[in-house]
Amino acid sequence: MSQQSNDEQGGQHRRAILQVAGAAAATGLLGANAASGQTARPGGRDDAPLGARLQGVQHFGVTVQNMDRAFAFYTEVLGGTEVMRDGDFKGAPVHYTLMADQEIVARERRVDPRTIGVPDLKGGAQRLDVRFVQFENVVIELLQYRDAAQPTGSGDSWAEPRDHMSPAYPRSMHICFYVRDDVNFDTFIADLEAECARRGMTQVRANRTVAVHSEQERRAAPRETNTIKIHEGPSNGWSIVYCKGPEGEQLEFVQVLGPVKKTFADAAEARRAATNRG
């Protein structure tokens, strides 16, 4: 391997590290020690339980088929704000940071890594692009793995989208958004679907609380069937909608009112108090 190649891979590695640190700084989630340039002292935070060394969730990541379409949904439709974007990531350090476990799986199965969705970031045949979108309390990272010759942001991803999208599958994850207390939840969902349909984002479809046997029946269902509202038990005050996003990703929208709102508020306050004592 040439010195130039080594330097390029080293630069990619440093860039990946700066990418993560920069995103955390941009969203105000670096710790006080990092912000002040101090390092942890023996007997300090590094000796605390693992949970006490965390500051919370920094972001949720979604691998998308079409970056421009996904970015428009999370910024223009849902109102998120772009934090930063970067891309054209490639090289061995990036490849193995993201794909080492899948390389091992491919080797154990004696199959070509490409057949189980492993792109060639190491050799540069594929590249990774990212965009970070800020909401009030969390950041969403959009990731697209594309062929090197494909322009950044446009076109389809390198890998095929998954066929099985039921949230019942183990390892499935979803992104949940709060709906404000003073918003009519049923109207919000109707407006969301209408706006996405106007933009051609036909994958954005919310479920209904009644049986529907076709897309026509789903659209024709009464507006009050848009959301399920819970009025008893520990979840009293919780309203829920399950909805697919433009990339087929699982989304949830919730409104948290009444007793359950107090339950979560009390839990958050108790955690803050315990953290401050630590």
Rank of each mutant, 00 (worst) to 15 (best):
P151V: 03
Y178M: 12
Q9D: 15
A72V: 07
R205C: 01
F264A: 09
A148H: 10
P167N: 03
Y169E: 06
L54V: 09
R146N: 05
A270F: 03
Y242Q: 08
V179Q: 04
T227W: 01
L98Y: 06
D47K: 09
A190D: 13
E193K: 07
A34E: 15
L18H: 12
R107P: 00
F89N: 00
T97K: 06
V183D: 03
G87Q: 05
T202Q: 11
L142G: 05
G11V: 10
R205Y: 02
A16R: 14
V210A: 12
G258K: 04
W238P: 06
T209N: 04
A197N: 15
N33T: 13
E160R: 12
S5H: 07
G43F: 01
V138H: 08
R208F: 08
I189R: 06
S214Y: 01
A267G: 08
Q38W: 05
I230W: 05
M201K: 11
R14Q: 13
H213V: 00
Q255D: 02
G200N: 09
Q12G: 01
S2V: 02
A21Q: 14
M99I: 00
N6E: 13
V254N: 07
Q144A: 11
R110A: 14
A23R: 13
R85K: 11
Q203I: 01
D120M: 06
S154Y: 03
T263Q: 06
V139G: 01
Y242K: 01
N276Y: 04
V133H: 12
S154T: 15
I104S: 13
A194N: 05
E217M: 06
L18M: 10
L251A: 13
V241A: 15
T263Y: 04
L251E: 02
A265R: 10
P113V: 01
Q58R: 11
D147Q: 02
A21N: 10
T81Y: 00
V138A: 14
R146H: 10
A92M: 02
K122E: 11
D182A: 14
G10M: 07
V118N: 07
V260F: 15
N276D: 10
A32Y: 00
S235A: 13
G56H: 12
Q203H: 03
Q9T: 02
A211R: 13
I228K: 12
Q203D: 14
R198H: 09
V130L: 14
T263S: 08
R114V: 07
L98E: 01
R109P: 05
C243R: 09
Q65I: 06
V210I: 15
R180V: 05
F185M: 14
N207D: 14
L142W: 07
P259W: 07
P259K: 03
H231T: 15
E224S: 11
Y96V: 02
L251S: 03
E82C: 07
P170G: 05
Y74N: 00
C243M: 08
V83K: 02
